[in-house]
Amino acid sequence: MNSGYPVILRLEGKTVVIVGGGKVAERKVTGLLGTGAEVIVVSPVASDEIQRLNRDGEIDWKQKSFSDGDIKDAFLIFAATNNLEINQLIRSSAAPHQLVTIADDPGESDFHVPAHFQRGLLSIAVSTGGASPTLAIKIREQLEEQFDDSYEDYLDFLFSKREWILKEVDNASLKRKLLKTIVSSEFLTSDNREHEFIRLYETLLNETCQ
């Protein structure tokens, strides 16, 4: 069996279709919120949460049974019904360039969604290749404890300082030292990262100029 290739997809402006309106479909919808994707749910019935999101304008719920035209413009397709025949029909209706995942059938899916969580800009995903989603969730929960909410501000700091270093620091050696040092535990736990960064920059700059 070939291994999967992990990627982070940018879905802003792309159409994602979820066929199904139950709890599985609801989890897929929830995971897509905030990505900028145009999320379309196709199902004769839908959970209360899917209906609420539709009323709030966050998704588009098409209250109907599946037909080929529902996925014509889709970039990603989630076959999330509890009917095997309908899920297989969705699979066969997709064009070769469209990516399809089938609930509870990783072998027939083009992709699957890993157990994941975010801390601001930090995104951590765990996959068992479909062997045990339960284990993936267990590992994710362990990582959530290790990478707590403090990483959100820390990642914002790293992002802004990396942008500044790449723009303002010409010396390649100094640039490497700065980028390496700011990912240390001292900066993670610091109460005043900006002050510590200025002091680090001045120290390394003096060492480089000597």
Rank of each mutant, 00 (worst) to 15 (best):
M1L: 10
G4Q: 12
Y5M: 15
P6A: 06
P6M: 05
R10V: 07
V19R: 08
G20L: 01
G20Y: 02
V24N: 02
R27P: 10
V29L: 02
T30C: 12
G31K: 03
L32M: 06
L32R: 00
L32S: 02
E38C: 05
V39I: 15
V39S: 03
I40E: 04
I40P: 06
I40K: 13
V41C: 01
S43W: 02
S43P: 11
P44E: 00
P44F: 00
S47V: 08
D48N: 09
I50A: 10
I50T: 04
G57T: 09
W61L: 14
G69D: 10
F78R: 11
A80C: 12
N82V: 11
N83V: 14
N83R: 14
E85M: 08
N87G: 05
N87I: 01
R91A: 13
S92W: 02
S93N: 04
S93T: 07
A95Y: 04
A95E: 13
A95I: 00
A103K: 05
G107S: 11
E108V: 05
F111E: 04
H112L: 12
H112Q: 13
V113E: 03
P114Y: 05
A115R: 09
H116N: 15
F117N: 13
G120D: 00
L121C: 06
L121S: 12
L122N: 04
S127G: 05
G129P: 01
A131I: 09
A131P: 00
L135S: 08
A136G: 15
A136F: 07
A136L: 06
I137R: 14
K138W: 04
I139A: 12
I139Q: 10
R140L: 04
E141M: 11
F147V: 14
S150Y: 03
Y154E: 01
L155Y: 11
D156R: 12
D156E: 13
F157K: 07
S160N: 08
S160W: 05
E163H: 13
E163W: 02
I165P: 13
E168A: 15
V169G: 10
N171C: 10
S173Y: 07
I182P: 04
V183E: 02
V183R: 03
S185R: 11
T189S: 05
R193E: 05
R193H: 01
H195D: 15
H195Y: 09
F197S: 01
F197N: 00
F197L: 00
I198R: 15
Y201H: 14
E202M: 14
E202V: 14
L204I: 13
E207M: 03
T208V: 07
C209H: 09
Q210T: 11
Q210W: 08
